[in-house]
Every structure is written in C-alpha cells, then in structure tokens.
Amino acid sequence: MEKSNFMSTFDDDFRYESIQDRESIVKYLTVLGEGIQNGRLLFGTRRKKLILEPGGLLKLEVKAKRKDRKVKLNLQISWSSDKEKGSAGADSLEIKAGKKR
C-alpha cells in the first residue's frame, strides 16, 4: 500500500508524522499519557474519528536503537479490545477501536 500519511480510508487506521523539537514533542506525549490514564484516546480528522479505549492488560514494548547518526526510540502499546471492528455506538461518526492487527 502506498504510504498514507494521515488517516487512511480504513476507519480504524490513523497515522500522523511530523518533525518536532524536544519541547513540542512533550505536548504529544503528555496528551497520549493522559489518554491512557483516562482509558480514552482520540484520533481524528474533522470527518472521521478513531477512539481507542485502552483497558485491561496492555502490552508495552520499548525499543531503542542507535546506528551511525540515526537514533530511534520505539514505543508500542498494544492490547485486545472486547469490541469488534464496525460495532460503533450511537454516534455514527465515532468508530471504536478494532483489534490490533
């Protein structure tokens, strides 16, 4: 699939890529941290929203890597949701998290 940079046509797939500095990246990490704490993470464009509800046991993977001048820190959080893909609630714009593929 061609690289789609943001929200793809698949409703449960969101992607955001940007360049930040240390100061601005913390804003994102804080928001994500709060979302996990509250059990509700919102990702969206004006038209589509993806809401993830982390709960139960979450798997955390941390990978750090340095090769030549390139450094990479990978944080991956995954879990199983009890709701199937497409079983959205009353608000048709809200699409609940599907299974992590």
């Binding site: 929200m7 979302g35 464009t45 004006r46």
Partner: peptide, 9 residues
C-alpha cells in the same frame, strides 16, 4: 494533509 486531532491537540 488535513487538520488532525490527537487528544486535545
């Protein structure tokens, strides 16, 4: 790219 939302950002 369109306007995006990540939590409150």
């Amino acid at each position: 790219f369109p306007r995006l939302q990540i939590g409150s950002i």
